[in-house]
Each structure stands twice: as structure tokens, then as C-alpha cells.
Computed example of a mutant assay.
Amino acid sequence: MTTERGVVRRPPGRKAQILVVASERFHRSGYHQVSMAEVAAGVGITAPALYRHFTNKPELLRQAVGAELAALRTAVTAGRAGPAELCARLAAAAIDHRALGTLWQRDARLLPAAQRAGLRRELRADVRRMAEVLGLARPELGRADAELLCWSLLSAYGGLSYHTFAPPRRRFERLLTGLGEALLDVPFGPPGPPAPASAELSWPAVADTRREELLAAAARLFHQRGFDNVSTDQLGAAVGIAGPSVYKHFDTKAELLAATLVRSRERLWHEISAALAGAATPAAALDSGLRAYLDFARRHVDYLGVTVSETERLTEPDRKAAIDARRDLLRTWVGLLRQVRPEYDKAEARIRVHAMFSLVNDGVRNRPGCQRADLTERLEAFARAVLGVS
């Protein structure tokens, strides 16, 4: 905007507008697929004008993640009256800020370690505030149990990041609020006896052991550090070969990522389908399928983490295959849940299934909760609460 004297003034709220557009673009396409010029065009300004607000793209990402976390903090502060109010506030924030889940899980890992640590401290402080609210309503809970429930609540609401459909706003908020209240109300009795160790299902033998070693190493390193932060030298060193030797097995690092995700999908479906096939009723299939997924998630944390956070780094054909496989899995679960709870329409069933997967996927990876001896038992109870089958 230009005044009569020719002085250029920036429109009010321009920086906030940029952060909203950047968050949405990063969320939808992934940080590396979005240019500063694209963000500027989305706001209706030039790239040089964008650089007057943000010195570079990493700084834009840092502030975008920070803005999403600030919205979460506002909801937590407004929900201090009790668990019901907390769920209502967080449900509304989750609908309005769907980008937070993917920005936090995927793109924030690209920030420098010190910045990531600072943002993580902010999030942990919010969870402690949530746990204080929950603890006043449920004084029988210890701090660790209250915080585990609150982390799980954030994860369940974060499931909105992975789909775009939505019922009418009021119904959406009621559904999410009720889902959250059911989760925060899950009883914490004494832990049951440890579950027996799960036997690995038979898996076809493979001749190329080095290739399999690379797949396992890639899953671990890509999950821990992010695809873009792992070099071929690091991949080679993880299996005792020189970095260039990786290319004897895979033409590119992207091909290695694609093969890693294919292996993850194959193993997951192998185990889930075996569990579903042996069930006599839909309810029994839901029970055995949920336990099989929890068991897979506990034993294959790295494969699961790569699937959650690195799909966007695939080439387009491989990305489409990964997304199609994910949709097939979701359709199976949605159909099964609707057989057990026929009063759910497709939208409600999908929201609940996404919340369940997000809760489990985060729960097996997030410290310190992932180190609990009773984690599988707790996550199963939480998953049943969000599915509405507890």
C-alpha cells in the first residue's frame, strides 16, 4: 500500500498471512517441494517482498512451526477449566490448524538441532499444562500417566493432518470433543502381566542379504535423522561398506527409500491380513487386527516412522503407490469399524480410524512414553476409546 507521500507501508498482518500460506504449502506438499516464490504468490506479493519478512526458507519454516505451536498453546490456556473444555478448545484448534501434525512430524526435523530442541521444550511445557488440568479432575493419575494421556490426545487430534474431509463444523467439533473426552477418561488400573513375546510371522527368505541390511539401516537412519540428513556414506558405514557401494544395490537414494517403504508395507499387510483372516466376526477381526497393528508398531518402529514422515520425499510414481496402499489399509479399517459400529457414517469412521493410527504411530515412537513396560496395554485401551469400541 502506498501513501500520498509515496511511502510504502506493509498491509497489517502480512507476516501472519505469509505464515498461514507457508504452513499450508509445507503441509500439503512437503518443505522441499515448496519454493519461496510459491509462498509469495500464495500471499499475492513478490519474492523480494517475502524476504523482507523472512531472511530465508529455513527461518520461514521455523516461524511457521512456531506459529502452529502458538495456536496450540492458546487452546491449552483457554481450556484450563477442565478436561471437557480442554478437549473442546483443542478440537477447534485441530480443525483450524491441520498443518501442525505434518509440520511437527516431518518438516520440523529439517531445522537445526538447537531450534528443534527449543520447539520441543515448548510442546512439552504445553503437555505439562494439559496434564495439570487432567490431574485436577483425575487425582488418581500419576504425572507420567496424565502426560501419556495428554500426548495421546494431541496425537489423536493430529490425525486430522492426514486427511482433508470434514463433516459440518459443529458436528466435527462435537465428534472430536467427545472422542477426546473418552480418551482422557480411560481408566488406569494396575498394569496387567506382560504380553507374551510375539513370534515373528514367517517371511520369505531373501538371497541378497546386503540389500536387506541396507533396507533395515535406511529405515533406522531415515527415521532418526530424516531422508535429507542421511548421506550414502552414512548408509554404507551402517552396513560395513563404502558409500559408493550402496549404488550396487540401488540406483539412487530415492530408490532405496522407495524400497524401504515397500518392505514396510509388505510386512505390515502380511501381519494384519493374517490376523483378520482368522477372526470369526467383525468384532473379533477388529480386536485381532488392532493387536496385530500394535505388535507390528512396537517391533518395527523405524519402518513405521519412515512411512509416516518420508512418503513426501518419494518420486511421484512411488509416492502414488505408497498413498494408494495407505488408502487401501484405511478402507479396510473403516469398513470393519462400520460393521462393528453401524451407527457411524463413513466420515465419522474415517476420522476415528485416522485418530487411532496417529495415536499408535506416535505412541510407540515418542519418549519417554515409548519406554513404558505397559505401553502396548495402554495404547490398546486408548485406541479402543478413540474408535468408540472400548
Rank of each mutant, 00 (worst) to 15 (best):
E271S: 10
F54C: 09
P168N: 04
A218D: 06
S29P: 03
A349Y: 05
A67G: 00
E316G: 11
L304H: 13
P191L: 03
R326E: 08
P342Q: 10
P11L: 14
F227M: 10
L359G: 06
G189R: 12
Q234Y: 08
A279M: 07
D208T: 11
A321K: 07
A88L: 07
G363N: 07
R62P: 00
V386Q: 13
R25H: 03
D362I: 07
P190F: 03
S23H: 13
L329E: 02
G159N: 03
L103A: 00
L141C: 00
A284L: 09
G226R: 08
L359P: 05
A275F: 03
T77H: 09
W104T: 01
A144M: 12
R210Q: 13
R225Q: 08
A381I: 00
V206Q: 14
R338E: 06
L175I: 07
F357S: 03
A205T: 15
A94L: 11
W104E: 04
T281R: 04
A195L: 01
V20W: 09
F165N: 05
R365Y: 05
L294A: 01
A258L: 02
I351D: 03
G158T: 07
E316R: 09
A216K: 12
W203V: 15
A113F: 10
P193E: 01
L69A: 01
H249M: 11
V306D: 14
S202E: 15
L19C: 08
G13T: 07
F222T: 06
P342L: 06
R350N: 13
A238G: 06
L201K: 02
R341G: 11
A37N: 11
A274N: 09
N56R: 14
P194K: 02
V340A: 03
G289H: 04
V186M: 00
S152M: 04
D302I: 12
L61M: 12
A84C: 14
P187V: 00
P167E: 10
F26T: 08
D318F: 07
A137R: 03
K57L: 13
A205Q: 15
V386R: 04
R365M: 13
G101L: 01
G369N: 12
R365A: 12
F222H: 09
R120H: 10
A16N: 08
Q105H: 12
P187N: 01
A199H: 07
A49C: 13
G236K: 13
Y31C: 15
E4W: 05
T177M: 10
A93E: 12
M36L: 14
L261T: 00
A219G: 15
S23R: 11
A238N: 08
E132D: 15
